[in-house]
Amino acid sequence: MAVPQPVLEPMVPVTAKVLGVRRETPDTWTLSLEPDRPGLPAFRPGQFNMVYAFGIGEVPISISGDPARPERLVHTVRAVGAVTRALAGSRPGQVVGLRGPFGTAWPVEEARGRDLVVAAGGIGLAPLRPVLYHVLSNRADYDRVVLLYGARSRAELLYRRDLERWRGRFDLDVLVTVDRPDARWRGNVGVVTALFQQAAFRPEATVALVCGPEVMIRFTLLELEKRGVPDHRTYVSLERNMKCGVGTCGHCQLGPVFVCHDGPVFRTDRIRDWLGKREP
């Protein structure tokens, strides 16, 4: 797989202007960014950027926008630490730093002609949204497409506008569930793995893409195995500490891989042994 070369030294960010900030959930914001420098490498669904907040630091954040519109870089940020809080609190016109795009991509080409199951938990929908944009722009290339999405509660669902639009389509099966319903919730209740009972796809002709907390990933893989989707057609996206994004800082090591450049998207059969290990 060809790796797009960044235009500058790999450790030096380019600046990008914040065009818009949208609050997704009580602690999650979506930033859309316009790099000051044109001609940056296009991203592929599943890749991430290192995003820098002036003087505070840098974090890896997956790219959540439409791959057909690479001039707008969309990042969904959950405010959990100093850097993500600073990014989440930025306002239009502010400037952040960007390095990337880094990492491996979801196999949208390999999935052509097959059924596609996209299973996301919580903020795990963020790296998968570019897949849905891509698939919907090239809908004829795919057979059945199913999105299974679970979140903690209604308030913590990402991209509600997209979800509603997608639910309205006849060529996309969207199943959403929450663990903790409030009085206004009329949808499914239960964990995302339970949605598989309702999902219609042909296991032998399916490519499945999974992202969410690691527990969710492990149980979703079991569900896919139970349904008969082979390991080599399921893909997961993993999260690890990253300082460089380019495979030289060592922080994201998981067994024999660096999650930053051998991942974050892995074919399950190549990483399965390490997913079950404790403190790997």
Partner: peptide, 23 residues
């Protein structure tokens, strides 16, 4: 070879720098 990075600003917040350190 492992390294980490640290970010700092001057007191006025006008300059920032990023350093790489062995980790």
């Amino acid at each position: 070879f492992c390294t980490t990075v640290t970010d700092a600003t001057d007191l006025a917040g006008g300059r920032a720098e990023r350093r790489r350190r062995w980790d």
